[in-house]
Design a protein around this nucleic acid. Sequence first.
DNA 1: TCTGGGGTCCTAGGACCC
DNA 2: TCTGGGGTCCTAGGACCC
Length: 406
Amino acid sequence: MTDTPLLHVDMDAFYASVALRERPDLVDEPVVVGGSGRGVVLAANYVARRYGIRSALPMARVRRLCPHVVVLPPDYDTFTTVSASVMETFREVTPLVEAMSLDEAFLDVRGSVRRLGPPEQIAEQLRSRIHDEQGITCSVGVAWSVSVAKVASRRAKPDGVVVVRPAEVTTFLHPLDVGELYGVGEKTRTLLHRASYVTVGDLAHTPVPTLQRAFGRHLGAHLHQLAWGTDRTELVPQAGPHEPERSMGADETFARDTADREAIVRELLRLSARVGGRMRAAGVVGRTVTLKVRFSDFTTITRSHTLPEATDVTVEVHRAVTRLYDALGLRRERLRLVGVRVEGLVPRTAVQRQLVLGEPEHGWEEADRAVDRATRRFGSAAVRPASLVRGRGRTNESEIFPGRLP
DNA sequence: TCTGGGGTCCTAGGACCC
DNA sequence: TCTGGGGTCCTAGGACCC
């Protein structure tokens, strides 16, 4: 408890590094992995970064910064496979692995020191194993709290290790800009700077009540902990039957902004089907359905509705978001994006679905199950609601599963 | 052709209940 | 007659992470 060395392992430019394994001829060229059209950069190799290219930059700006940049499409199947192997390597070091995403994880190595040596030695072992086995590099932060390990790995990039022992925390952290802290983003950084908190040391030497008055009870206390590296040390490993996710959602940006209700309702159906399918695959149901709408000017609103009973039924989710959409009363406003999310998820086994004799509603569950079976056999492209197959035309529930009317 | 898609957590107000 | 206070649920928005 008092001595829990943590490793934060972070792949360097993960998607780009994996993509470049297939294209070694491009390693010295500026390369980004990203979508086409209205997409953004998912990863940029270090050559591209010399042009100022960063993750999340719009592709249009990337081409302006570096006209000869090579753009590779993301291959999520390969990313997922490589990630699984890397995580497996982590678990050979310690079972206490908290995966943060495909390309990064925290490792609690307190139980591994006896077997494998001090934390920095474990870090180097991991780095050479991943390099040899996967052909990609990673960086490791070694520290005694989550946020310090995270900041350390960032400063170790690329292809390095940074160790911050407990006695070194203040020397390491306090000169840094507040924006370097894990959990302080652009907005909070600006807020802090405007209030004359520029370095981490500035925060550290301010009493907690003062910070709480200025930034809220929770954020104020949290900032103080971050500034002293006294945030959490216990990891949450995802081993075994982990608790279900709290929400599942899907959203999509239109290729072109649209105000056409038919197109929007059709898109909501696609998204509802995607979310419903994932919920059923995970065995969860949820009661709160949320619609997300982003307008042309990028302002974004959400509207949610809590159903009397939890559901995983595509048609019920779709009906709820369509009602929320219609209640907005939009006329000419063009939409850039719509999204569907279901929150408050619980295992399906935990809720007793109300059985109402003669209620037609529940026939949709069978229809969903049929779709799920077909999807498993033939792939998602093969099975879709009828109103999505026809390019245009009316969209109503009776069209969605022709021949399977309850 | 500026700005993706998947999440988590926090805040704050109002309803409602005790 | 100046009128409390806590807990929970619902809704909307916002910040942050990768």
